[in-house]
Computed example of a mutant assay.
Amino acid sequence: MKPLHADPTRRLALQALAALVGGSALPAAFAAPDYPSRPIRVVVPFAPGGTVDVVARMLTPAWGELLGQPIVVDNRSGAGGMTGADNVAKSPPDGYTLLAFHVGLTYGSALFKKLPYDVKRDFQPVGLLGATPSILVVNNKSPVRSVGELLALAKKDPGALNYASAGIGASSHLAVELLQVVTGARFTHVPFRGGAPAVTATMGGDTQMMVETSASVLPHIKAGKLRALAVTGESRLADLPEVPTMKEAGVADYVYTTWFGLWAPAATPAAIVQKLHQATQAALDKPATRQGLARAGVEVRHASTAEFEKLVHADVDKWSQIIKSAGIEPE
């Protein structure tokens, strides 16, 4: 017999029932009248300083105020986010251990042969947090000054240029894989244990380029340590009005944005999920949160738990097809 959480439809039905009947017919844990009664741990599966870490820490003060308990960010990097995600998947479904991740969570099943969790089965989506384009950057001392020059070098000597990423399966990994598929250029992947060390390597010249979320690289671009060649979204960034989009730079079929979200372990009671969702929506609407995320290049996005779950499941399927089409073999 399958465990209850293995059937998403049945899980959602049970959660809806729990929300309707509250504490009158179910244990107090399901009605969650006293939740939260102790600090909540938010696992960020990347090193401090990366975009997911920035987003989570921007929300922490508002979350703590709204929920009435301290929110502790726990950075557990490794394996492209898989280490931290697995920790949450195997945690008790009581609302005290949550996962902050980005669209990269949906890549795992196509990238790893032995993924220790199932994204559709083992996590309960809580809420969408925001979205941001990425920026194609090189070291500021690099002779490359345009996307065209970069692609010409990569095609002249395939694999000679190294690109940094936050790890296998990270957003910064798949962004370049997609670029290779679209352009035919070839780069060599150098994965790190998080976005911050990957950015540091690019600034130091250990790697030649990367495609990283704007929140992680904007400060270094403004400090003159990185050179922005293009923005991966549909439009230019207000903070970098002189930097073209990839389409404007000549790569017509390339658009890449990263969304961020919050998850709980599967089978977390619906009342707890709803309370977390409501707190998250309220936190995102606070002016201080919006302004802080905007400074980091992240645009606030709202979605119901059902809408967010639909997005997650659709992206699992979409990226599985893209990764397979790119010829990327699961590791």
Results as ranks from 00 to 15, higher is better:
Y117C: 02
A266S: 01
H313R: 08
L179Q: 04
S134H: 07
W263Q: 06
F187V: 03
P269C: 12
A270V: 14
Q274I: 04
V255G: 04
P8N: 08
D86Q: 11
A29L: 09
L240Q: 06
M58H: 11
H220Y: 15
A185V: 13
Q278E: 15
R236S: 14
P241Q: 06
A62N: 04
K141M: 09
Q281E: 11
G167I: 12
L237K: 07
W63H: 06
E299G: 03
P143A: 14
A228M: 01
F187T: 04
V52A: 00
D94I: 05
M58Q: 14
P158F: 14
I322E: 13
E331D: 12
A283I: 08
P39V: 07
G148S: 15
F308P: 02
R193E: 15
T9C: 13
L237S: 07
A264I: 05
P116L: 12
T202R: 02
L67I: 13
P269E: 01
A13Q: 15
A228W: 00
I168Y: 12
E248Q: 15
G224K: 08
D122P: 03
L229G: 10
K324L: 12
K286N: 05
I168S: 10
T245P: 08
L293C: 00
Q180A: 11
P116Q: 08
S214E: 15
H102D: 15
P287C: 05
T97L: 12
A29D: 07
G169C: 11
A79M: 09
E309P: 01
A306E: 00
T132R: 03
L98F: 10
Q281D: 08
V176G: 07
I71T: 11
K222T: 10
K310W: 02
T258L: 10
R193I: 06
F308Q: 01
L218G: 08
D94W: 06
P330K: 09
Q124N: 09
I40Y: 11
P219V: 02
S24F: 09
A294D: 14
S165R: 00
H173P: 04
A152M: 10
G50D: 14
V21T: 07
S214Y: 06
S91V: 04
A32D: 01
T97E: 14
K156A: 15
H5R: 11
L17Y: 00
L178D: 13
L161H: 12
T232P: 08
D74Y: 03
A47P: 01
K275F: 08
M246Y: 02
T280R: 10
A201V: 02
G233F: 00
M209F: 06
S171L: 08
S325K: 06
R38M: 09
T200P: 00
I221G: 06
P287I: 14
G50K: 04
D86R: 07
A271I: 09
A223P: 04
L153S: 13
E234V: 03
H302S: 07
Q274V: 06
V52D: 05
V199T: 09
V103G: 05
I71N: 09
V44E: 10
R301G: 02
A201T: 02
V273L: 15
T202Q: 10
Q208C: 05
A160R: 14
I323A: 15
V137M: 11
P8H: 07
E177K: 00
D317R: 01
Q180C: 10
Q124C: 08
G127M: 07
S172T: 15
V52S: 01
D285T: 04
L26E: 00
L14P: 02
R121W: 04
E234I: 01
A152G: 05
A266M: 01
